[in-house]
């Protein structure tokens, strides 16, 4: 194809997006659109899958059968969400194995929040409330994104996520209404998860090089800072109801703006964790790579069994 033809196709493509038309997998798309989507959708899928690890850590130690059933269901949902997203990424012409390979080799990233440890039961409450809360804000914005398979996966995910946040908040509420020691556990979890949750929205707008292009493709509908502000504004009143406080001395209601002012994120910590030096990066990757490698014989055996059954059917038919 000549440069002129490509320019023409690009113009038609941009016009379709401007008209809010969805792009489907077999449609022509600029190579950069394809690559950006593979990167973002797979990063999202990896986050769901790695996100099972910190919570899975507490399934056997949940304090009651009710909590255990809910946590199991939540972790199972995350597996499902990872699978919806992997298949959306595969429609762009990358195989599942390539996607796993990118995660295992460290080429692909996942959300840094999952590199923090879950050291008490209250952390399960804080994750549902804050981490899923932040994820929902990001994800609702993506339900109208331009790439059809991604938007459809996000609609399903958003429908299912609301229970995740409510079950987390209910855990926090129960702890905060409990003994002084239980309330202290809730406060401690909030202290540790607050700043990493704010980091989930990514770098500040002026440090986020992809934002302009992603807004144009409707891969992002709001900027990182706008979404972060929305999260703070809706979460502080929820903390007030719990009777615990976020670890930010600079947090203050700004009457004129009608929103909260808040302190500066420790961006050194943010970049350290992104670059692989968080408290649990190594442990998480070892768990994922280990699960994949130790599962090899199971996958192979299932394939051999399937072939054997298929051959049997052919033999019976002849």
């Amino acid at each position: 194809m000549s440069d002129k033809e490509i320019k023409n196709l690009e113009a038609i493509f941009e016009a379709r997006i401007d008209r809010d038309e969805k792009i489907e997998p077999k449609d022509w798309m600029p190579e950069k659109y394809r690559q950006t989507h593979i990167r973002q959708i797979s990063q999202h899928a990896h986050s769901e899958i790695v996100g099972m690890l910190p919570e899975g850590n507490w399934i056997t130690r949940a304090p009651s059968l009710r909590r255990k059933a809910a946590l199991l269901a939540k972790v199972q949902d995350e597996a499902g969400h990872g699978l919806y997203l992997y298949s959306a990424a595969e429609t762009l012409g990358i195989s599942r194995n390539e996607l796993y390979e990118q995660l295992h080799s460290g080429k692909a990233k996942y959300s840094s929040i999952f590199n923090y440890p879950t050291i008490s039961w209250a952390d399960i409450g804080a994750i549902g409330w804050l981490v899923d809360g932040a994820a929902i804000i990001n994800q609702v914005a993506l339900c109208t994104t331009s790439f059809g398979p991604y938007a459809r996966a996000m609609v399903r995910i958003c429908k299912e996520e609301s229970f995740h946040q409510r079950q987390g908040y209910e855990i926090m509420l129960t702890l905060c209404k409990g003994t002084a020691e239980q309330k202290a556990m809730a406060q401690d979890a909030l202290n540790r998860w607050w700043w990493p949750s704010l980091m989930m929205f990514g770098p500040r707008d002026e440090e986020s090089p992809h934002t302009a292009q992603s807004m144009k493709w409707k891969l992002k509908r709001k900027t990182n800072d706008e979404l972060r502000q929305q999260f703070v504004d809706q979460t502080i009143p929820q903390a007030d109801i719990l009777g615990i406080t976020v670890p930010d001395p600079n947090l203050k209601w700004n009457e004129a703006k009608g929103q909260y002012d808040f302190g500066e994120i420790d961006w050194d910590e943010f970049w350290q964790v992104v670059k692989g030096h968080g408290p649990c990066n190594k442990e998480r990757m070892e768990a994922r790579v280990g699960a994949w490698e130790e599962g090899t014989w199971v996958r192979d055996a299932a394939m051999v069994y399937a072939e054997k059954q298929a051959n049997k059917k052919v033999a019976q038919a002849s």
Partner: peptide, 8 residues
Amino acid sequence: FGSLHAAD
């Protein structure tokens, strides 16, 4: 509804 991988 979507897709998935399976042996058979």
